[in-house]
Structures are given as structure tokens and as C-alpha cells.
């Protein structure tokens, strides 16, 4: 019905409206960014730069996928950055200690270290999920609180000093390695995208997550285990952030408490721009990937245009608010026309 009523408007205006209702604001933002930045810098559209952006976007893509799960459930996760920081610190400390203890088995140390990082992020996700699903704490307060708790733990563990002395192989493979010419982090992201796509489109969990976010009461009346579904969304989000955390740690070759400081805002922006509804129930994996790519592209383009990082913060925040306003308009168009 929405496309039909939109196509009643003749000409390009109607077409643009139909496109907006169907896909949201992302195509417009993407087109604008591509045009503006390619005018500012000739390097922008080069293959080399775009590949570079793809590699840089890996971390945000992974976190945004997690953020998308939580947004679709009708909440949001402000603690993704903390999950990254805790993962980074815990996995780095574990790796350093294990590598010293068994210098001959570096890969075992790396594996166990990574698992320690995942385990710590799992705890963060479980805490969020428990608060929101079981105790009905608002997602905003729960994840805000956990974000502070996690950041405090990370700082307490390290005293604020980066954890250095990581095994060389760790950074070499997970940070800079390539398989068949493809950077290892990109492979992780690709696998992550495929798995989350299948999860959301082909499994019961995905169907139930859309339902819980679309109408919690109806999902409950249909026999969906709503609490479990909500809980798992937060756990999965923390795990995806944790994978990004391990990859980022490998890239900077140290365990740092300040990794992922701005990623909560960036991931929410990526999702909202990609048409994930803040009211829950709506959102598509492929669009979110594109949304995360767009944010990275934007940052890359702004760097090329020599826009300072302070100004970039202003622009990114404004863009998020703008995207939410457009989302509001689109929601009214979706629900209002009848």
C-alpha cells in the first residue's frame, strides 16, 4: 500500500518518496557524501581509498550488527564501547601472562587470551540482558550503568596503563595478516555479516527478535519466550563487540582501556541511518552493513577534506539527530497512510 500511494504522486518526487519509505535516509546520505567528497578530493573515489575504508569499517560493522540486534529488540546498548575496552584489556593481560608461562605455545596463549576476552564481554552482555529482560530496567539506564562499571573495571585492572608485550604473532595475524590477499579483519567481518544475516532471516531467534521489538505483548501472547529473546540479544551484541575488540587490540598491538570510546554513538548512528527503527522491530542486516560503511566513509572523507576531529564530532552528532528526525517522518509515513 505504501508504494502504491506514493506512486500516485507523479514524477521524480513520488519516486524519491517511495525510495525514502522503502530504504530510509541512507541512499540520500550516501549519494550526498559521495558527490561532496569526490569533488573535494580526487583521491576519494580511488580503489585504494575505498579498499582502505572497507578495512577500517570492519570494527564498526561488527559492533553495528550487535547494536542492530538490540535496537530491533526495542532497546539500545550504550555499553558496546565498554565491552570492547574490557575485552581488549582482559585478553591482552591473559595473553601476556600465558605467553610468559608457556613461551613455546604462543598460539594456545593467543587462543586462551581471546577466549578470556570473550568471556568477560559475555559477562557484560549477560548483565545488560539480565537487567533489561528480567528486572525490566530501561535499556538506557541499564547499559549506561554497565558502561560505567565496565570502564571502571578496565581502568582498575590496568591502572590506566596500556597492556604491552603482546605476542608478535597476534598482531601480525589478526591485525595486519592477509589470507589470499584479503585482510584477516575483513574476513571476520564477512563471516559475521553472513552469520547475522542467517540468524535474523532464517532462524527462530531472528523471527522472535523482530516480533519482540515489533510488539512485545503480541509476541508473548504468541508463545514467544520474550525474556530469553531479549537476554540473548544483549549477549550477542556484547559478543560481536568483543570480536571487534580483539581485532582492534591486534591492530594497536596493546590492551587499551580507551578503545571504542566513541563507538556506541557511531554504531547507533550507523543503524539509524540504515533504517533500523528506534522503536524496534524494523531493521535489515545488509542496510546496517552499508550504514556502518557510510559512517567510516564519512570519517575518511572528512579526514581527506582536512576537517578537524572536533568538528567531525559535531557533524556526526548532528547527523545522528537528523537521521532520527527522518526516521520519525518515515515512521509516520509508514504507519499513517492507510
Amino acid at each position: 500500500m505504501t508504494d502504491q500511494s506514493a506512486s500516485k504522486l507523479a514524477g521524480p518526487a513520488g519516486l524519491l518518496k517511495a525510495l525514502f519509505i522503502r530504504l530510509g535516509v541512507l541512499p540520500f546520505f550516501l549519494a550526498a557524501a559521495l558527490i561532496i567528497f569526490s569533488l573535494v578530493s580526487t583521491q576519494f573515489l580511488s580503489m585504494q581509498n575505498l579498499t582502505n575504508v572497507a578495512r577500517q569499517s570492519v570494527y564498526l560493522v561488527l559492533v553495528s550488527l550487535g547494536q542492530m540486534l538490540v535496537l530491533i529488540s526495542g532497546g539500545f546498548d550504550l555499553a558496546v564501547g565498554t565491552a570492547i575496552a574490557v575485552t581488549s584489556v582482559v585478553s591482552a593481560m591473559a595473553m601476556v601472562a600465558l605467553a610468559a608461562w608457556m613461551p613455546d605455545m604462543v598460539w594456545v596463549a593467543i587462543l586462551l587470551g581471546g577466549l578470556a576476552g570473550f568471556g568477560s564481554a559475555l559477562l557484560i552482555g549477560a548483565l545488560n540482558g539480565l537487567g533489561v529482560a528480567q528486572f525490566g530496567v530501561s535499556p538506557f539506564i541499564m547499559t549506561l550503568g554497565v558502561q560505567s562499571v565496565g570502564a571502571g573495571i578496565a581502568l582498575f585492572l590496568t591502572g590506566g596503563v596500556p597492556v604491552s608485550g603482546l605476542p608478535f604473532e597476534f598482531g601480525n595475524f589478526f591485525g595486519f595478516g592477509r589470507i589470499f590477499g584479503v585482510p584477516v579483519p575483513v574476513l571476520f567481518a564477512l563471516v559475521g555479516i553472513v552469520v547475522i544475516w542467517l540468524l535474523m532471516n532464517r532462524t527462530r531467534f531472528g523471527a522472535h527478535l523482530y516480533a519482540v521489538g515489533g510488539n512485545l505483548k503480541a509476541a508473548n501472547l504468541s508463545g514467544v519466550h520474550t525474556k530469553r529473546t531479549l537476554f540473548l540479544a544483549y549477549v550477542a551484541c556484547a559478543l560481536l563487540s568483543s570480536i571487534a575488540g580483539v581485532l582492534m587490540t591486534a591492530r594497536v598491538e596493546s590492551g587499551e582501556t580507551n578503545l571504542g570510546g566513541t563507538i556506541a554513538l557511531e554504531s547507533i548512528a550507523a543503524c539509524v541511518i540504515a533504517g533500523v527503527s528506534l522503536r524496534g522491530g524494523i531493521g535489515r542486516v545488509e542496510n546496517v552493513v552499508l550504514g556502518a560503511f557510510f559512517i567510516t566513509l564519512l570519517q575518511n572523507g572528512m579526514n581527506m577534506a582536512q576537517i578537524g576531529s572536533y568538528l567531525q564530532m559535531i557533524l556526526l552528532g548532528s547527523l545522528l539527530i537528523l537521521a532520527v528526525i527522518f526516521d520519525q517522518v518515515r515512521y509516520r509515513m509508514l504507519m499513517g497512510i492507510r
Binding site: A207, Y210, A211, G213, G214, N215, K217, A218, A219, L221, S222, S277, G281, I282, M335
Partner: peptide, 10 residues
């Protein structure tokens, strides 16, 4: 149910 148990977004 009288209050629909349908999810509008699905």
C-alpha cells in the same frame, strides 16, 4: 484475542 496478538512490523 480482542487486543490483537499481531506484530505490526511483521
Amino acid at each position: 484475542f480482542q487486543e490483537f496478538s499481531l506484530v505490526p512490523t511483521l
